[in-house]
């Protein structure tokens, strides 16, 4: 008997009696979703900037990452071209990656980033700094609404703040293995 057959037959024999799968109710929405989101991002170590359009990002980049050489993006002008086939050596040199986030979650500041927005699966993690652009109308209250809006795809990540660790004496350190900073660029509703 294969391991699979062994395991499945043992489970069949040992599993407890049927129990129902619950329906997950809709939980009440936050009153001020956008403010809550901004607060959440700050709490988890991220920064929020609000822009009227993406065109304004250059000014901000100049101010914040003036020494950055390699800025990689699919949505604003990019100094390097990165694709799924880019070499690790090239990826490693990324100073700032600017990527489009799909959904923001108010209760915890997480942003859904699906593979198709990443350029390369490793990019959001190997970059020294990460900027996620989010349309303000794509902020939802909680994880239930977020999961209603997304699908598994091939690969996707909820990113909540910069990479961090507290493994040494519970002291919070920002910038473990992934991005050292996370900036959320909120794009205001186009009028």
């Amino acid at each position: 008997m294969s391991a699979k057959e062994k395991i499945i037959s043992a489970i069949k024999q040992n599993k407890p009696g049927a129990k129902e799968l619950p329906v997950i109710p809709v939980f009440n929405a936050e009153e001020n979703t956008i403010e809550t989101f901004k607060q959440s991002v700050k709490t988890i170590g991220g920064e929020v900037i609000e822009l009227a359009s993406l065109a304004e990002i250059d000014v901000w980049l100049e101010k914040k990452f003036s020494t950055a050489e390699n800025i990689v993006s699919a949505i604003v002008s990019s100094s390097v071209t990165i694709s799924e086939s880019s070499s690790t050596e090239l990826l490693e040199k990324t100073d700032v990656a600017i990527l489009q986030g799909e959904w923001g979650v108010a209760e915890n500041g997480a942003i859904w980033l699906p593979e198709q927005n990443m350029l390369n699966r490793a990019l959001p993690f190997i970059t020294q700094h990460l900027m996620l652009v989010l349309n303000i109308e794509n902020i939802v209250t909680n994880m239930h609404v977020a999961y209603e809006n997304i699908s598994s795809g091939a690969y996707g990540v909820f990113i909540a703040g910069p990479s961090k660790t507290a493994d040494i004496e519970q002291s919070l350190v920002i910038g473990a293995h992934g991005a050292r900073s996370l900036t959320v660029v909120l794009l205001k509703r186009a009028c």
């Binding site: 699966r121 091939a154 961090k164």
Partner: peptide, 16 residues
């Protein structure tokens, strides 16, 4: 850990 969510919640469905 008393965080609202982990920094990365990664959904691996298909290999690249």
């Amino acid at each position: 850990t008393g965080q609202p969510i982990t920094t990365y919640t990664s959904h691996f469905t298909k290999p690249r």
